[in-house]
Amino acid sequence: MTKPRIYTTSFATIYPHYVTKAEKKGRTKAEVDEIIRWLTGYSQTVLEKQLEESTDFETFFAEAPDPNPARDQIKGVVCGVRVEDIEEPTMQEIRYLDKLIDELAKGKAMEKILRE
């Protein structure tokens, strides 16, 4: 079985779309970065390095230093699929991030997005 194309896509090519989506709704790049750091455990410096190196999605999530244990509280539908029902771990991580960015763009408070 071949991997989904998103796995080999550079995280750096999709990241600007996350930022644009947030900014169109009055949110900031800093908030996008905070969400990514919360989900993965990357520091800002290492996140920026991953972007510079054009790390692919699969590697980006596989190398995440400290995936947040509260990420299993992320529930809902992204692209017609319930994120909590996705069985493939890498795809689930990608959809978790998509869901969090959607919540940001919809104006949800950061405390709720970060499951505090």
Rank of each mutant, 00 (worst) to 15 (best):
V77H: 09
L114P: 09
D66H: 11
R71A: 12
P16L: 03
K3I: 08
I36K: 02
A109W: 15
E87C: 03
H17G: 04
R37T: 11
E84L: 13
P67A: 01
M1C: 07
E111D: 14
M110W: 08
E103G: 08
A62L: 14
K49T: 14
A64W: 05
I101F: 05
D98P: 00
D85I: 13
P16K: 02
V32D: 01
R27E: 09
I36V: 15
A12E: 05
D72P: 00
H17P: 10
P69W: 01
H17W: 06
D98E: 14
Y96T: 00
E116W: 07
D56G: 04
Y42R: 01
Y42N: 04
D33A: 10
I74K: 01
G76H: 12
D56N: 12
I86S: 02
K3R: 08
D98M: 13
E88N: 05
K99D: 02
L51T: 09
G80W: 12
S54L: 10
P4A: 03
T8Q: 08
A64S: 15
T55E: 06
T90M: 06
D98S: 13
E53R: 10
D85A: 12
F61D: 00
I35R: 00
I6V: 14
R37K: 09
G41Y: 01
Y18K: 01
R37M: 11
K21E: 14
D72L: 02
E48S: 12
I94R: 01
S10H: 14
K24D: 08
N68C: 01
Y42W: 07
I6M: 09
E53I: 04
L97Q: 02
R37A: 04
T40I: 13
G26T: 09
Y15R: 04
S43F: 07
P89G: 09
A70C: 13
M1T: 14
E53S: 07
C79I: 12
A30Y: 07
S10A: 15
L100Q: 06
A12G: 06
K29A: 10
S54I: 04
Y7W: 11
P4K: 03
T55G: 12
I86H: 03
H17T: 14
V32Y: 05
E63N: 14
G76Y: 11
P89M: 12
L39C: 02
S54Y: 06
E111H: 13
Y18V: 10
G80M: 13
H17N: 11
K29N: 08
T28V: 12
Q92G: 05
S43K: 06
L100W: 00
V32F: 06
K29H: 08
T13N: 11
K49I: 14
K108F: 09
I86L: 11
